[in-house]
Design a protein around this nucleic acid. Sequence first.
RNA 1: GCCCCUGUAGCUCAAUGGAUAGAGUAAGUCUCUUCUAAGGACCUGAUGCAGGUUCGAUUCCUGCCAGGGGCACCA
Length: 549
Amino acid sequence: MGLVRDRLLSVIADAAGIESDKIKIEHPEVEEYGDYSTNVALIVKGGRQVAEEIAAKIKSDDLIEQVNVAGPGFINIKLNQKVFIDTLIDINTQKDWFGDNQTGAGKTFVIDYSAPNIAKQFGIGHLRSTIIGQAIYNLYKSSGYKTIGDNHLGDWGTQFGKLLYMIDKSGQKTYDLEQLEKWYVEFHKAAETDKALEEEARKWFVRLENGDAQAREMWKKCVEVSMAEFEKIYDLLGVKIDYVYGESFYEEMMKDVIEEAKKSGVAKLSDGAWVIEVAGFETPLMLLKSDGGTTYATRDLATLKFRRDTWNPDVVVYEVGAEQELHFRQLFAAASMLGYVKPETKLVHTKHGLYLGTDGKKFRTRGGNTVKLMEVLEEAIEKAKELGCKDEKLATKVGVGAIKYFDLLHNIQNNIVFDWSKVMALDGNSGPYLQYTYARTQSVINKSKAEKSDLLPNYKTNKEEQSVLRWIYRYPEVMEEATIRLAPNLLCNFLHELAQRFNTFYNQHSILGDKDEETVNFRLELTRAVGQVLKNGLGILGIEAVEKM
RNA sequence: GCCCCUGUAGCUCAAUGGAUAGAGUAAGUCUCUUCUAAGGACCUGAUGCAGGUUCGAUUCCUGCCAGGGGCACCA
């Protein structure tokens, strides 16, 4: 049947005699104006007169209850109640699939996200990538794409030179993540005064890259120790990423990349290092350092080549922070110079904003002043318990839901000031508010023993019921928009508004207590639909809907 | 110095060319013998500055101011 919006769009386009992709149709901010409005008459510069003509032509369409012309030539349209009733039926029959579409059928989508660094705490910074990445992954999956998530673990690079140097110096055989991080900070402090240390670290990394047994052994230990910690966090977050090809996975492939770049003349020798110059940038991309070591640019090129050969993707998204913007712009250009991406493949860097400290500045691992994600999660769960979540499982769902929602609510590219009390908000526009509203719907449904009931198309709705109806049918549109724009926050906004409208209705009218049987039937179906859409939307956001709270 | 992002209510954020700029929070007043008060109702309060494009600009362009991030051998 298709989206209500698309059906209406073609009706209007026919009447106006222009192609439907030339005109726009939107929801007026003032709901009394109508459910949709179009500026078609303004586009053709016809003003009110043309607007009236088009309005007259579309007036009798099945979808439409009422049409009027306003302002400079807006055509406002009120939908027929049957459209709303049909939507309720759709929701309650399609259930978990309501809101999905097939715009990505036959296409492949790869997303690179989370990517914590081995030997460092899983910081609050990687939280954004993990949560947003998962939401985007879910959005694309629900649009019919073949979706591939890859956790591009930071398990290779010069920082291991620093670490191996420190481990070797300490003589310790066993160490935990906390110790590794301490060493890393210590190294940087010491290196400020002792320049020779950087040189030592470089040597260690080259040893690692050359397959030195001692270096390998220590490195492997670092990976194991770190991964064990990361797994705990992924479990708590309920995140599972399809692949975990860390940077080290591309070790062998980098040799081919370097060879090809040299041979094709794309790479040039500069100050003893092999670099790729990219037009428009002062500094080149570092392919091979003068000491013979590789960089993350080398690994990212190998990664793109691997992804092309393995999955042949149509879209590759890097859910990585804005501070790496320069790197990705250069990387994308270099990759196309080397032919590692098909010209029609879309490469996107989401450039999410950073979590800032309360001083308004970026958290820095080197200075040691980072916020540990584990502590944040634990505190959120604790707060949920204080509010009355009896068991651990429920408290986890609510606490983690709060943190995820807080992150996703923000426009991706904005920085977020990290404030404990706001990150874990359990009321207002928050994850728990949506979970709570969902729990309410389920509570009502469970109380009524009634099975699914038939809806009467001419049931007379009240104001609060209409308010919900006039909102809920937009869900598939919002899903589409959120996918195209890589903007999960649009979905957050939609769900919050839906929950608010439902709660207003809920407070004024009894669902099961009404004397009229048809009214009870209708309200029950409405409640089912709201619950279903909340559940579906929360699922996309990676937040679990809970039956009781 | 150059490049990128941001500037909206006291505070934290929405709204990527439309009509009366939305939420949350904080302050205040109501609201549980009724399906979950983590709720609902009411009440204050905002587009950094200056131009331009447009029938129409928070949104696009230019300049300025302010904040953040980045600028080859870190990732």
